[in-house]
Amino acid sequence: MKTWTRLDEVPGDLRSVVTIGNFDGMHNGHAKVIASCVDRARRAGASSVAITFDPHPTQVHNPGVGLELIFPLNDRIDAMAATGLDATLVVHYDASVYTLEPEEFVVEFLVERLGAVEVVVGEDFHFGRANSGTVDTLRELGRRHGFDVVMVTDIEAPEGRRWSSSWVRELLAAGDVTGAARVLGHLHRIRGTVEHGFKRGRELGFPTANLHGDIEGVVPGDGVYAGWVVRTVPGTSSTEFLPAAVSVGTNPQFDGDKRTVEAHVLGRSDLDLYGERIGVTFVARIRPMASFDSVEALLEQMDDDLRRTASILGVAVAGRVAPDSVTAG
């Protein structure tokens, strides 16, 4: 899939079927809209193109809301590429875009640059200055400028709720990463740079990769999770998936006050991840965060966490590692 970040990167002779959206999280509803775009483009002998925006419009118009993207732009683009799209146009969302009247947006982006023959959108699609354009507006502009409009009806979960990014955020806040994965259609992942911590886990036989300051993606609610550490093997382009027990919270056992993500890779004492940018993928929540009456009780629980993590991930059970065998700096 080609990725364009400026209009002048788009070929001048393009003929396309276009879909438009923020696509944050690339959940099942997004996937349905994009799949329709890809299918209709193939049948029309045209290119399938998605327009998405960065930063998210809510972050621009309502910064006080503190909206966190479900996952970062690069992951969004990767997920969009997996749908079979031919190209994605990432539009820098600023006043030059959100002050355009609906017809100005259509002419500048869809007609003159992308050569749209069809535009595929969801039921709640809005565009143009103050979101004044609707699907009906787009249909009228399509008749005027020579493209058809296809509306994809909302897709609902079995319980009747519409798939949405806000639903994903609710589930993640509650620590329900399994439910979030069902809505997303894929496991949830965050990214961050491994930092030095207090090294308490190492002393207890559970060395961890700690993420705190520059995390991209929505961090699930406090608790202990089974998941994967995802990293690029140094000096290569290969991706490595490492089974991990992941703790999210402030570490109440030791009166912590900083919320961190700490990932213990099962059975490994030879990893030095400091300074690496890694991904942490969440598979299932094992238990809520808790404090214990003694360190011994904590260790007993952590041993059980490792067993449950291995069972969920389908890997060999690994116990604590010897503190003096840890090679990280």
Rank of each mutant, 00 (worst) to 15 (best):
L313R: 00
D13V: 05
D148C: 02
A322T: 10
M26S: 11
P323V: 04
A245D: 03
F71T: 02
N22A: 10
R200A: 09
F109I: 08
T281C: 10
A130N: 10
T99K: 09
D86E: 12
G201Y: 02
A116H: 09
V119R: 09
P220V: 04
T193M: 05
V107E: 04
V219M: 03
S166A: 14
R42V: 06
R191S: 10
G175D: 01
S16I: 01
H186V: 03
D136Y: 02
H126D: 00
M80I: 12
T3K: 05
T178P: 05
I215S: 11
I34G: 01
H30K: 04
A226L: 09
F147A: 05
L211A: 05
N74A: 15
E276P: 03
V280D: 11
M1N: 12
G279V: 00
G213S: 14
E156A: 11
T134F: 03
F241K: 14
L187Y: 08
V233N: 10
Y93H: 11
D303M: 04
P63F: 09
E156C: 06
F206H: 06
E112C: 07
P252K: 15
A244K: 09
K199Y: 00
R189Q: 11
H27D: 12
T250S: 13
A263C: 07
L299S: 03
A31I: 08
R191L: 12
R307L: 10
E296H: 14
V119Y: 08
R320P: 13
R268F: 12
V229N: 08
N251E: 14
H61M: 14
R320D: 08
S237L: 12
A174T: 08
G185E: 10
G64Y: 02
G45F: 06
T99N: 12
A46P: 05
Y98H: 11
E9V: 06
